[in-house]
Design a protein around this nucleic acid. Structure first.
Lengths: 231, 231, 231, 231
DNA sequence: CATGAATGAGCGTTCATTCAT
DNA sequence: CATGAATGAACGCTCATTCAT
């Protein structure tokens, strides 16, 4: 994706940034199709023609906006070294970060998915984004498997796609479709499901003790979570 | 959604059906925006003006097409009584059916998601579809919990959304984004992840024995599945 | 050049003809670039959108208009059998017809020349037009040569191009650039120059006796033509 | 045509000359309409805004470019005193020079013709160019008539226009439309046609003896020229 | 003098929808 | 019922020209 941005003066950089910002807001508010170049220009406080000084087309603008969102996803969802080395805690931290990163870019990423359906240039961007997350997840799982902390019979890539998809999809349902849930409960559930799905065995005892039904009984140390009523 | 279909002659019914079928095909092939009324009419073999005898607008046509797809999803994904009463087997059957039902309607459902973003009428249809599946899943889980076969601390609705989302999202990645995987492996993984995530304890011993790491050691009775290499 | 004209109703045919006529007039009056689709539609009494029911583009409209003009040139400039078999008389008749045919299509043909410069589709039309006239002229000359009535050392094609060009160019100067001359004098001069250039020898004595300077004298039976003063 | 060129520094003169040269090249390569001020500036190595320091508009630039081309036509096509006083030889020399002068300015002159159609300022320039050549031709013919070397019944101006047009038009067909011919043959034909058309009688015997059919026979002292086959 | 950012009028084209026949 | 001609609002994009720095 070639970008019109060589040799800009300070003023030019300001205008370009204003258009980019205005574009991002407009796309988020109204969706790709509903956004008119005029809307973006009005919001950025420039005339119609100025837009084309900085972007070749509406599509090009979206390309940059989406690219920025993708970049933010990458950086925002890295589980830093602050988080303790406990696997469960790290999964939990990752889920939390992912939910939040998605929350910040939800609308744009949905748009990217839609546009990518019919445009190979955007399809590339989308697949790249996806691949980074899939790789990261698969790598994490493989390490756990090697440490004997997770079921070694699971295919790392497939599993990463499936469990990563669980989180992503929930984010969509929660944030875009209005499913009511509080963040803490959501992250707690996601993490427990994830951890147990891969058979995660905590080396330490930190984190909620994963449920293991040790027999046919069915009783155990459960606390009733806030049960959600149907709307 | 009011439908223009009262009192049609036989000929009229045939024309209407042709338009509906043509519309469905056109939407699936080219996507909502790219479809022109002309395309639909040409495919149905009627003149441009005739379209408006049967549908109020392009949107109305899509409404019916999407409604039909939703209906198919409902009927296609009911796990029949043929499947044995084993919980694991029923989850597996449900996953297989859901993957296949999605495969048959993938494009239309993605379109419905997209259109629903900006149109409340379609949003209703989408939420209705989602709700049926969520209810069905939550109900199933609650039953297992009551039978002591699944972790009773999980919120049924939240869990159903998350695990259902896992399947749905994987279907999208697999079918729409071209992730390579064979159906058997996919269903196997989805089912194992699902079953273990809820702490499913098979009353019988049918189905792959769920992996349970019974201690700190990490050895156990696992069979190596066809490990998939990264692409 | 594909034409949008299959299966038109009487009404459609009328509208199309109106647009064609309106287009021709507009092009002739204002030139290709200055003509707006709106102008054409207003003149034809239809709305803007209707234009595109019948023509794919402004260029397509011009293609048909130019094609019609070219067709008229062909038919209008055929020296009929009414003209006596005298070579000189036939050349004269041809020149007169050509001048008049050009007069009727001058502006359009100049536009065709201009557009053809940058567009191969129109270049083809232009070359075709030119070729027909060149062939016709070369053929005529060859016949005269075979009859021993014209200089056999002249290359028929080259000569036809040059003398034909003389007439065409004069038509342009006369009609488009406003050079003042009356038709009779113009045709008379063109014909005499043409005839003498190829060494035409009249078999009969009809027509103005071609000037032949039979020595160094320089006297002869000449009538002073209306001498035109410089402007 | 007022020109922005008073009181330029050396640097200014260089910039102006660069723009002029760049403009000429751009016009010749892409045609008036297709040339963007940006193209010219880029080619001249100056910024967009600088253009308007030296020229009032794109049209003004073309005016100067065209003016220069017209000037070159004037100087390039003067038959110098080197050419012997033989009339035929001088006509031949003039034709050759004219063909070559046209070759050097063909594209620009065609553009001038086109633009002059709708712009009176350029129309003036065009008519001036034309008038100079017409005058020159008419004057030459008049001299020959007075010397008794050419048909005195021909209107000098009209004849000059017609025969001059023959040469000019051939140049166009040859150079712009790609008619194949070699220069020598072309000049030979043009000159023979021209000479015989005005009934030129050579005082000397230099040059190809003009074909004169001196009776009804049709034989004569002709030499077969390289006969060109139809393409 | 040079720069290049900003301007904005202008135009070709699309297509869902209406309606006379 | 079917037809298909007519409608017209809407929008992306171009580019010559201006002007503050």
């Amino acid at each position: 994706m070639i970008v019109k941005s060589e040799a800009l003066t300070a003023r030019g950089r300001r205008t370009r940034a204003a258009l980019l910002q205005a574009g991002r807001e407009a796309f988020e508010e109204h969706g790709y199709d509903a956004v008119r170049i005029d809307d973006v220009c009005a919001r950025a406080g420039v005339s119609h023609g100025t837009f084309y000084t900085y972007f070749d087309s509406k599509e090009a603008l979206f390309g940059e906006v989406a690219g920025a969102a993708v970049g933010e996803m990458f950086t925002a969802s890295v589980v830093g070294p602050t988080v303790p080395d406990d696997p469960y805690a790290r999964v939990e931290a990752a889920n939390l970060l992912y939910l939040r990163a998605w929350a910040a870019n939800s609308r744009l990423l949905r748009m990217l998915e839609h546009i990518a359906t019919g445009d190979d240039r955007f399809r590339g961007l989308l697949l790249e984004l996806r691949e980074v997350f899939v790789r990261r997840g698969a790598e994490g799982l493989r390490r756990l498997q090697e440490q004997g902390l997770a079921d070694p019979t699971l295919d790392p890539r497939l599993t990463a796609i499936m469990l990563g998809g669980m989180v992503e999809h929930f984010a969509h349902v929660w944030l875009d479709l209005g499913e009511r849930a509080d963040e803490r409960t959501a992250v707690d559930h996601l993490t427990r499901l994830w951890a147990r799905a891969i058979g995660l065995t905590s080396p330490s005892t930190s984190g909620p003790v994963p449920y293991v039904d040790r027999g046919q009984g069915g009783e155990g140390c459960m606390t009733e979570t806030d049960r959600k009523e149907d709307r």
